[in-house]
Design a protein around this nucleic acid. Structure first.
Lengths: 243, 243
DNA sequence: CATGGTTGTTCCGTTATTCGGAACATATAT
DNA sequence: ATATATGTTCCGAATAACGGAACAACCATG
């Protein structure tokens, strides 16, 4: 394991914990002595990726934010999707978000939250499983080379058990033009998603997430129509035809 | 120079260039042979901090965005400032932003852009010099221990030449309760700023930036009143009294 | 005030890792 | 077919990482 790996471990550790950590806590979290942790952290602090408060505690640094915002601003897809997602979220009062494949994994690129007290609130940049989500089914249907199904963790009783069971869902998603996920990932969570197809390529997936009860109340046709409409709206903006 | 340093150099290089870079370009940018650059990049790619496109080119990775957004969400000051800055920007049609000190340097934490065709558009997370900005003067006046004046680069003819000249400006900023920067950093750019003081501590600086011509047209009293009002508004929110 | 425990930091001989030229595999252009 | 470019792998020499121990500063408690 290279020292770069260890430094990145430290970086992610600080980012995940969120709060300021003692040197000993970092060392314990990385499984190394304090002196080693100190040496690892020094370059991170020098670049502003980690910071030390007045008590010497370490926390995620500010330069991290600059790097991240820089990366985000260079994602034209997120910019194209934002107004469409917000319009859809305002209209239905439910959470809409955009999922894309990056390095074989599915991540949340942009979102617009609904206004319910109980609402889906995905974290930007967070990963979602392929085999237990509507977005995963659509990616397997339209661009299987962009994602990898490495595991079949059973999150709930409704989670697809095997590749064969999943493929049935994938085939249905392809023919229908949308996919659903009824508590296959998280209990109580229902999702409908539609592909953002432009120029024959899959750019991402628009998803609506809500509580199962409200999903049934709204009705499948209402939901799918709105999700497909949003996905097509984003596809139009990608192609430059922004009416 | 540690290998961690080199990896971070590579990370910043990819972030700054913005576009996908060939391995040779990265190697040249870091001043090392291609094989070394390749080895340095491997752990970054593994963690998603760097990515490779279909042609093998390297660019800033998606995980960077997740880390940055995570760090940003943990900045309560930015959350407190956003609505205040947006209200001010809407009212005057000029760009308002919040500058804070992090690790001895001044950085832009949050912003709300004006609506002019020619308008100030600072990059989030970007650094600004201490000796040639209104924000720098206010930090030197209220919390000199949080910033370091390491250089006196002469950006324009109006840039303060020496520590003595700067101290005069700092003293004026302290007594007036606000600071100005009339083309001391960038030609044509005029800024007025006010301190966000809460509980006797300086949390940051609110600044209004615009073209010099509009600065004069609006008038100093109008501008300072609005900037001070915004800074006080943020201070109130920090102290928990959010009316 | 002394003391025991904690903190972050520095030191240094041993050891494991990084280094980079060269060779390789692949793709595109001449 | 040849030439030049790419990203990747290999391996002995050179170097930087390792971590226990010692240090300095702090804060409780006796």
């Amino acid at each position: 394991m290279s020292s770069i790996d260890k430094a990145l471990d430290a970086l992610f550790l600080l980012s995940e914990r969120g709060q300021a950590l003692r040197l000993g806590e970092v060392a314990h979290g990385l499984g190394m002595p304090r002196s080693s942790a100190h040496r690892i952290l020094a370059p991170l602090v020098k670049r502003g990726l980690a910071e030390q408060d007045a008590d010497g505690r370490y926390r995620a640094g500010f330069a991290l934010m600059a790097l991240g915002l820089n990366a985000a601003s260079r994602e034209p897809l997120a910019a194209a999707a934002r107004p469409v997602l917000e319009a859809a979220a305002d209209e239905l009062g439910e959470t809409f978000f955009l999922v894309v494949a990056r390095a074989g994994r599915l991540v949340v690129l942009e979102k617009a939250e609904g206004n319910g007290f109980l609402r889906a609130a995905p974290r930007l940049g967070a990963g979602v499983p392929v085999h237990a989500t509507a977005a995963g089914k659509l990616y397997l249907a339209h661009a299987p080379e962009q994602v990898t199904v490495d595991e079949f963790t059973r999150y709930t009783p409704a989670t697809p058990r095997s590749r064969r069971a999943l493929d049935l869902e994938v085939e249905r998603a392809r023919s229908q033009g949308y996919a659903t996920n009824l508590e296959e990932w998280q209990p109580g969570l229902a999702v409908a998603a539609a592909p953002v197809l432009a120029g024959g390529r899959l750019y991402g997936v628009v998803a609506l997430a809500t509580v199962s009860a409200r999903f049934s109340a709204l009705g499948l046709t209402t939901i799918t129509r709105r999700v497909i409409h949003a996905a097509e709206g984003i596809a139009l903006r990608i192609e430059g035809r922004t009416p």
